[in-house]
Design a protein around this nucleic acid. Structure first.
Lengths: 214, 214
DNA sequence: TAGATTGTTAATCGATTAACAATC
DNA sequence: TAGATTGTTAATCGATTAACAATC
């Protein structure tokens, strides 16, 4: 890296959204795009788009704009998506099943290569071409498939223990779907996907509008 | 409301997390808590906790801290969760199924009272005690159950059309699980839950660490 | 060339943190 | 009272926006 200015997480989040928008433009045969068009497409300001990109280099041509395919590839590369990522998941309930079959992951270069559960009624079941395995099988799968990221899709009460076990197995990053703040070492990357927080932002905002017939 | 200082969305997000943490403390029989303990529990600073609460009033006692049950109720009330919310959902695929059976929603006072799909192979199927209905049934269900919020769990290509239809049916807020920025009128509250953005933040961060054996 | 759009700097805005008086 | 912790103000930090020179 030439310049290592600290990149805001909000910028990385938007980059992910830009890159998906660029993929869509590319699929639709669009070859050139301006910061203003990207901004309109994803709902931010043109200055924001240019500022975000400026953290990583100069990708456009003044007076012209950006080449869609090039910028798409740059953004993917920045996000680390110019390669394939294997994942393991713990929790073979309905959410785990949905995540395993979620096309959005594959489209971005992610593959879930192992699903684990400690529930004997779930072990052995198949999800797509995967068999649900007991927790003890995790180390082997991780080694075989060079996995660095784990997904937690268990009930809340199991999440912390599962996270600890994942780290013991060598995971470097965790995506947690359980609505519980995990306590983990600093060197582990963790992000939470909370399914109901956004819903509560909606109810908060609706609360200030006419309550209709409550 | 006495004072109407604009509340940052980050504050509302944390409030949702505090309130769940307080519910947990309450279940565990804890009756009193300080801003520092809440901060430790959810991973923010004590000043942050106090500042967030200060937008809405004075809930603690100097020198003592907060009463868990009281603060829990206050936070729930602020979020609009002192009442029950009925929801409708479009999309009866794996994700829709997982969301319908997700306990986390019920625990916060949400009920999905209608699931819709335009896929004839899905219509008529049962999810818990709900039957998947054709889109045309949405207006009636919404009227019968006083629904104001809709969830989109469809494939990406259908999301915009579904959102437009929901608004036509009178929805005031939308929780969108499709990875696509929706274009909607300003008076509609929309929030996106993007299942892979957080994953890409992880790969971005891992990209700066030793790439191991790529 | 004239018009358009980038890359970047400076200005603004907003959120977080630190500090401390108030007070239990 | 002494110790603890809130509520709140001021200071700091960081992110967004505006503006414009560079340049295609």
């Amino acid at each position: 890296m030439v310049k290592t200015l600290r990149v805001p997480e909000a910028t990385v989040t938007r980059l992910s959204i830009y890159s998906r928008y660029l993929e869509r433009l590319d699929r639709n045969g669009v070859t050139s795009v301006s910061s203003g068009e990207i901004a309109d497409g994803v709902g931010v300001s043109p200055a924001q788009v240019r500022k975000d990109l400026a953290y990583f280099g100069e990708f456009g041509t003044r007076g012209v704009g950006y080449n869609v395919k090039d910028l798409m590839r740059y953004t993917l590369k920045i996000l680390g998506l110019d390669r394939h990522w294997n994942l393991v998941m713990v929790g073979a309930g309905n959410l785990g099943y949905a995540l395993c079959t979620y096309k959005g992951f594959n489209m971005r270069g992610f593959s879930i290569v192992g699903v684990f559960d400690n529930d004997l009624t779930k072990i052995g079941k198949r999800i797509n071409d995967l068999e649900v395995l007991p927790m003890e099988s995790m180390p082997d799968i991780i080694k075989d498939h060079n996995v660095r990221i784990g997904i937690i899709a268990t009930p809340t009460r199991a999440a912390q223990e599962v996270a600890d076990y994942m780290i013991k197995c060598g995971m470097q990053a965790i995506l947690n779907f359980a609505p519980l703040p995990l306590t983990l070492p600093d060197y582990i990357e963790v992000r939470n996907v909370d399914l109901s927080v956004k819903l509560e932002i909606l109810t908060f905002n609706l609360g200030f509008k006419s309550a209709q017939n409550v």
